[in-house]
């Protein structure tokens, strides 16, 4: 596995982790009853984008690996 594709894989994994962390933060604030009304839809959108971006980086890593 080439170094750029390794980095991309690691970044894809990191983005997936960020999605989880954002979800945790949203839940924590909701649980505490202090989440502003706008937070849930905004964070949900950003969590989805993290997950999608993670997939994009995985795909790019696959392409780089295929090149050999």
């Amino acid at each position: 596995m080439s170094k750029p594709s390794q980095t991309l894989r690691a970044d894809a994994a990191e983005l997936a982790e960020h999605a989880i962390r954002l979800r945790d933060i949203a839940s924590r604030l909701r649980r505490e009853g202090i989440a502003p009304s706008w937070l849930d839809p905004v964070l949900t959108g950003q969590i989805i984008r993290c997950a999608v971006a993670s997939g994009h980086l995985d795909e790019a890593a696959r392409r780089l690996e295929a090149r050999g």
Binding site: L8, R49, A53, H56, A60, R62, R63, L64
Partner: peptide, 23 residues
Amino acid sequence: ALARADLRGRLALARALTSPRGL
């Protein structure tokens, strides 16, 4: 990584870097 990738790789990276649904 864009600078070191071949055409197919670049296309995939460009998509990752510009997708309004992702990054």
